[in-house]
Amino acid sequence: MTVQYDHVQSGPGTFVNYVESHCEDLALTLFSQDLASPDARHRPVGSSPLKGWPGGQFVRSWAYHRALERAREEPGFDLVWYNSSPKTGLFSALLERDLPVVLMINDYNNAISRVPLESRDVLGRKRSIQRPLWRVFEKWALRSCDAVVVNSRFMKKAIGDWYGIAEEKMFLLYKAVDLDAFSFSPPPALELPVEVLFVKHDYRRGGLEELMGALSQLPQDVRLTVAGPADGDEAAIRGLARDCGFNRPLTFAGRVSRSAVRELFTTHDLFCVPSRAEALGVVFLEALASGLPAIGTTAGGIPEVLDRGRAGWMVPPQDEEALRETLDEVIRSPEARKQKVRHGRAHAEKFSVPKMVRCMEEIVRQVLRRRRARAE
């Protein structure tokens, strides 16, 4: 069950395409509202004009559960796996009795929002007011399903603690990077201006404000490219630059394709996303695979993709002064850049697509074994 398939815009869409192209031991049937050409293995899920309205998440969740109910009338299905969000699988987690239900949780935006405005520094005021409600339904779904799949060790502990989920019910499945799609080359000597790349759809959560503030204080000549936010965010981002005192050259690339991101990796000197919150951070792995020096924070699962700082640089989230000092150090340290980039590529190879798919297949086998044991 996947919300994204033909129009990949985020990690869950990439994940399902990787799984479909590399999975050998599972017979997959994909259900989605994002299908251009449905067939026997690609089943459409009914859409609704209410999906963008308040409560539209429940309409979508019910549509996916109804698709599951219709499919369950056919022989051969052993397990249902929701890869988009726990809320999409809410009704299946609550109502399905014949098949084990696996839910993936890809971020902790809801989990950190126990009360309104608690997470406003990460999510913004409006979303931090809404998230505590979604937290209730997300917790309900995760506690009702057969297995919970998380994408980092940080998430495994955090979600288990915050939602009270037993450890044996949770499985770690790292997201992958397609190493063949990225051409690795060691970093050349830096020339001024230093080209800095930021890639994050949610630029607030990505710490763009801290990055602009830190870059504005550097003695070196730098230029910043911002990729990922929607075109409608450009005015707000340029306003943020003025507020931060960032008067260096700023290129707004907007929402870009995955191939365009790979091209940006080859034309920039440094990659920096000082995230305030991050479940894992696959884009860091893509930067490492390309040979681009990467700077992140200690938030969430970033230390896991940066190998605790051996594959890149890390600073505390929302610490503008520490970020400025680190950027200055990276620019002034060519040998350190070379060393971390070489280690970074080797570390990224641990997150290959075949390894991820094998891990998913093993999770499926374990869930089915446990289901059979409980039945017996």
Score class of each variant (00 low, 15 high):
P193Q: 07
P188F: 03
V194K: 06
E210L: 02
A189Y: 05
V194M: 03
L208M: 14
L211S: 08
A230D: 15
A189H: 06
K200S: 15
G228K: 02
R204I: 14
S185R: 14
E234S: 08
T225W: 13
S216I: 08
V222R: 05
P193E: 05
R223S: 15
P188N: 01
A235H: 08
S185D: 08
P229S: 10
E209S: 15
D202K: 04
G232I: 08
V196G: 00
R204Y: 10
Y203T: 01
A235T: 12
Q220S: 10
P229L: 05
G207P: 14
P193T: 09
L192G: 09
A189E: 13
E209Y: 14
R223D: 12
A235E: 14
E195W: 00
A189D: 11
P188A: 02
G232F: 10
L197Y: 00
A189R: 13
M212W: 15
P229Q: 02
D202Q: 09
V194F: 02
V226K: 10
L208Y: 13
V194T: 08
P229V: 07
D233V: 03
D231N: 13
K200F: 14
Q220H: 11
L211W: 10
G232L: 03
Q217V: 07
L224V: 15
Q220I: 01
F198V: 01
E210Q: 15
D202G: 05
P186Q: 00
R204G: 06
G206W: 13
L190Y: 02
E234I: 11
G228I: 00
E195A: 01
E195D: 06
A214H: 00
G232T: 12
P229R: 04
P186I: 04
E191W: 08
R223P: 06
P229K: 04
L208I: 13
S185F: 09
L197H: 01
L192V: 10
A236I: 04
G206M: 13
R223E: 14
Q220M: 07
A189K: 09
D233E: 11
G207A: 09
V222I: 05
P188L: 01
V194P: 10
L218C: 05
A236D: 11
G213W: 02
R223W: 09
E195K: 11
A214E: 03
V222G: 04
V196K: 06
L215N: 04
G207L: 13
